[in-house]
Write a protein that binds this DNA or RNA. Structure first.
Lengths: 231, 231
DNA sequence: AATGTTTTGTAGCTTTGGCAACAAAGCCAT
DNA sequence: ATGGCTTTGTTGCCAAAGCTACAAAACATT
C-alpha cells in the first residue's frame, strides 16, 4: 500500500509532498486501522472526533429513518472521507452511519488537532487547515449548484441546464455525460421516460442529438437561453 | 454604534467578548467603512480577499445571468456577511455582486490573516478559525436539508416534511411557521394555490388544522409517516 | 366605520410529467 | 450465432400540480 499516492487522492492532502504526509503521524495524531467488510466505522448519533479517510476498500453511508428503515445515502471510494462535515457542524455527531462494503483500510486524523495549532506552527498543519476550509467551501458550491437543478421546474429547463453546464465545463459541442440515462434522471430528480421524451422533443427541435453517453449540441444559443431562463 | 453588540449577531464572533473583538483590529487587519445606498461592495468575478460583515444597514445579492439580467439571490441584514464562502472556494472570486440597499457600515476582515496563524498564536484568532469552520459546516447542513424538500416530489410530502421538521424543532403540536403562504410556497418551490389546495385536503383528512402562521398538528403519527416516506 | 392593502382561500382549465409496460438495441458471455 | 442481461427508446393513460382569475378575509390607516 502506497499511502502517499492514496492520500493524494484526498482533497485535504492533494498538495502534500511525501515528507509532509509522514508528519501526519506526529502532531496530527494520524493512525491507520484495517477492518473487514461489514464493519460499522461510524454510527449515526455518536460524537465525531476524527476525520476518516478510506485508503483501501470502500464504504456505504446510511441514514436511519425514524421508522427504522435504512436508506443508502452515498458511497465512499478510496480517497473519500467521512466526518469532515459533521466534525465541525452542529452538535458534532454523525448524521449517518458508515459501513464498509469490503475489507478496508482507514486513516484517522484527530479533528481537535487539525483545528488547534500545535506549538511548532508547522507549515503542513497550516496547509491542512486551509485545505479543510476550501474543501468545505467547495462542497457548498457544489451543493448549491445541484440545488439549482432541483429548483428548475420544467423538464426542458433541467436538461438544458445540465447539458449547458457540461458544455461550459468541457468546452466543446460534443459533450460526454458520464451518466447513463437512469443516473441522469436520478440526478435531475425526474422519471427516466419523461426525461427521454423531452430529449426527443429537443432533438426534433434541432437543439441536440445524441447517442448514449455522447451529446452533440447543435444550437448552443438556444440551449444557453433555455438553461438560463429556466424556472 | 455598538460594534460589540452588532458583531455578536455574526456567527464568527458570537462567542467573542468585548476585549477579544477589540483585538480584531490588530492582527486580523479589521477595518470599517461607511457607504451610501446603492454602493456595490462586491462585484461578481472579482477576487475575494476579505470577509465583509454588515454592521449597519442592509444589502442585496445579485447574480448576473449570461444574458445580462440581474437576479436577486438573497438579502443581507445586520450581522450577515459576504465572501465567507467564495473566499475559500474554487478560484476565490465572488459568485454574486453585493449592492447596499441603504446607507450601511461594513466591517472587513482579511481572509489570509484569518487562515494564517500569526506568530503570537492568539486565542481569539484560534476561535475565529474554529467558528469559520463550523459556520461553513453548518451551512452545508442547512443546504442539504433544504435540498431534501426540493427532492420530494409530492405536494403532501413536501408540506408534511416541513411541518414535521418544525414540530421536531419546536417540540409542540402547535407550530409557528415564520412564513406566510407565499414564502412557504417559494421555499418548497411550488405554486401557492396548489399548496393551499393540498393543505385543505390534509385538513379534511384530520391531519392538521391552521390559521395563518399557526399550524395545529392533530395526527403526529400520520404526519411523521408522510414526512418520512415522502419521495 | 370606511377604505385600501395584503394575505389567504377557491375554482376551473390546462399542461406536465409520473408510471407501467413493452419494444428495441447494445453488450457480453458461452 | 445464441441466448441472457442491461440500457435505451416508445407509448398511452392519468393524476398531480401549474396558472389565471377572482372572492373572501384579515389587517392597517385614516
Amino acid at each position: 500500500m502506497n499511502i502517499f499516492r492514496l492520500l493524494k487522492k484526498n482533497k485535504l492532502f492533494a498538495d502534500f509532498d511525501d515528507s509532509e504526509i509522514n508528519k501526519i503521524f506526529d502532531c496530527l495524531h494520524g493512525h491507520i486501522n484495517k477492518y473487514s467488510r461489514g464493519r460499522v466505522v461510524a454510527e449515526a448519533g455518536n460524537p465525531v472526533t476524527e476525520v476518516g479517510i478510506i485508503l483501501e476498500g470502500s464504504a456505504v453511508k446510511f441514514i436511519r429513518k425514524p421508522d427504522g428503515e435504512l436508506v443508502n445515502c452515498g458511497e465512499l471510494e478510496v480517497g473519500d472521507m467521512f466526518g469532515e462535515v459533521e466534525g465541525y457542524a452542529g452538535d458534532r455527531t454523525y448524521r449517518s452511519s458508515v459501513v464498509l462494503a469490503e475489507d478496508s483500510t482507514v486513516l484517522y486524523i484527530s479533528i481537535p488537532t487539525i483545528v488547534k495549532q500545535c506549538s511548532k506552527n508547522c507549515p503542513h498543519h497550516q496547509k491542512l487547515l486551509e485545505n479543510t476550509l476550501s474543501c468545505l467551501a467547495d462542497r457548498i458550491d457544489v451543493i448549491n449548484n445541484d440545488a439549482k437543478y432541483l429548483k428548475i421546474k420544467s423538464m426542458r429547463g433541467k436538461i438544458s441546464k445540465l447539458f449547458y453546464d457540461k458544455y461550459l465545463a468541457q468546452g466543446t459541442n460534443v459533450i460526454h455525460l458520464g451518466f447513463n440515462r437512469n443516473e441522469m434522471a436520478e440526478y435531475l430528480n425526474v422519471s427516466r421516460p419523461s426525461m427521454s421524451r423531452e430529449m426527443i422533443h429537443m432533438k426534433e427541435d434541432g437543439i441536440i442529438s445524441y447517442r448514449k453517453d455522447e451529446i452533440v449540441i447543435h444550437d448552443v444559443e438556444k440551449l444557453a437561453e433555455l438553461a438560463n431562463s429556466a424556472r
